[in-house]
Nucleic acid binder design. Structure first.
Lengths: 173, 173
DNA sequence: GCGACCTTATCAGGCAACCTGACTATGCGT
DNA sequence: ACGCATAGTCAGGTTGCCTGATAAGGTCGC
C-alpha cells in the first residue's frame, strides 16, 4: 500500500499530466450526453412526467412485482429514498402497491399497464440511442465499449447488474 | 428453437430489452467505482480535505490563473456554484485569488504551491487507476475505451474537453 | 403460545450540490 | 457621457439523496 502511494507520488513528480482528460470525466460526459438525448426522445412520448430519478424503479421492477426493500437494495439506495420515488410514481399512475399476500407488513410494487408501456418504451429508446452511437462511432467500437464496461461492472459492483448475472428467463413465445 | 430465440430477439428490438443493462447505467457504475478507488487513494495523501466537488477546479485551473467566469463555463456550472467551491478551496489553502491587473472587476484564481502539488498528485492517481484497469481488463481494451469515449466527448460536448482540443502549451524548457 | 428479536415500511428532519434572481462595481462602445 | 455588457457576490430555493426513530407484522426458542 505504501509502495503504491510512493510509486504514485514519484509518478506525480515526473508528470502531473493535466493535458489528459480523466477517464471518469470522459464517462461522465458520455453519460450526460446520452441522458440528454434520452430526455429529448422521451419528450416525444406520452411519458413526459417521468423524471430521471424514477429510472431506478423502471430499471428493476418487473412482472410480478417486488418489495420496496428488494428494490432499494438493487438500486443501491435507502428504502426511504426509493419509497419517496415510488410514492411519486404511484401518484402519476405508473405503479401500484398491492398488499403482499404472504406477508402483511410488505407491499408489492408493480407496474400498471401504463407503467409497463413506459418501461418498454424507455428501454427501446436507450436501445435506439445505442444504435445511433454505433452508427456514429462504429458498431464494433460501441460493442467493445459495452463489453468492456460490462466486465468492469461485473468486477466492481456485481450486485448492481443483476441482468448480467441472472440472464432473462426465456420469454414466452 | 432457433426460431423462438430469433423471435425473442426481434421482440427485444421492437419493444426494448430489459435484460440488457443500459449503457449509461454501466458507465455510471464504472465512474462510481473509479471515484471510490480514487477517494481511497487520496486518503493516503496529505490532501484528505479535498472533496469530490472540488474536482472541477483542480481539473481546469492551470498555471497563470483563470477567471471565475471562464472556470464556470468550462466546468459547465454557474458562477455562483463555482464561486462557493473556490471560497472553500481558498479557505483550505489550495487556491488564492489575485486581482486581475487587466480588469479591476475580475480576480484571477490560481493554485497555491499546495494546490499545485495536490493537482499533480490527483492526476497521477487517476493515471495509476487507469493503469490498474489496463492490467485487470486488458491494456488494449482500456485504450480503446478511452479512445471511443474521447470521440464521443468531442462530438457531444467539445467545450467540456478543452484538453483534447488545445493540446497543452509546451512547458517552458 | 409467548416474549425477544428481526424485518417491512414509513414519518421526520437534515445536508450537499447544485440552481435562479437580484445586486454592485467596473469596463467599453458610440 | 450615457447606456449597456460583464465580473463577481448575496440571498434564497430545489432536488436527490441521507440518518434516526417508530409502528406493525413476522419468526424462533423454549
Amino acid at each position: 500500500m505504501d509502495k503504491k502511494i510512493a510509486a504514485a507520488q514519484e509518478l506525480a513528480l515526473v508528470h502531473g499530466d493535466p493535458s489528459q482528460v480523466t477517464l471518469p470525466a470522459l464517462m461522465d460526459l458520455a453519460v450526460d450526453a446520452m441522458y440528454v438525448d434520452f430526455r429529448k426522445l422521451l419528450e416525444e412520448t406520452p411519458y413526459t412526467d417521468v423524471r430521471p430519478t424514477h429510472g431506478c424503479v423502471f430499471r428493476f421492477v418487473h412482472g410480478e412485482g417486488m418489495r420496496l426493500t428488494e428494490l432499494a437494495t438493487k438500486a443501491g439506495l435507502t428504502k426511504q429514498s426509493v419509497g419517496e420515488i415510488v410514492d411519486e410514481l404511484t401518484g402519476l399512475g405508473y405503479i401500484e402497491r398491492l398488499p403482499d399476500p404472504t406477508d402483511k407488513r410488505a407491499k408489492l410494487i408493480r407496474l400498471t399497464a401504463k407503467g409497463l408501456d413506459a418501461q418498454r418504451i424507455g428501454f427501446a429508446l436507450f436501445d435506439q440511442l445505442e444504435k445511433e452511437w454505433a452508427e456514429a462511432f462504429g458498431a464494433d467500437r460501441i460493442a467493445a465499449l459495452r463489453a468492456t464496461l460490462e466486465d468492469i461492472a461485473l468486477a466492481k459492483s456485481p450486485d448492481a447488474v443483476p441482468e448480467l448475472i441472472h440472464p432473462e428467463p426465456a420469454p414466452v413465445a
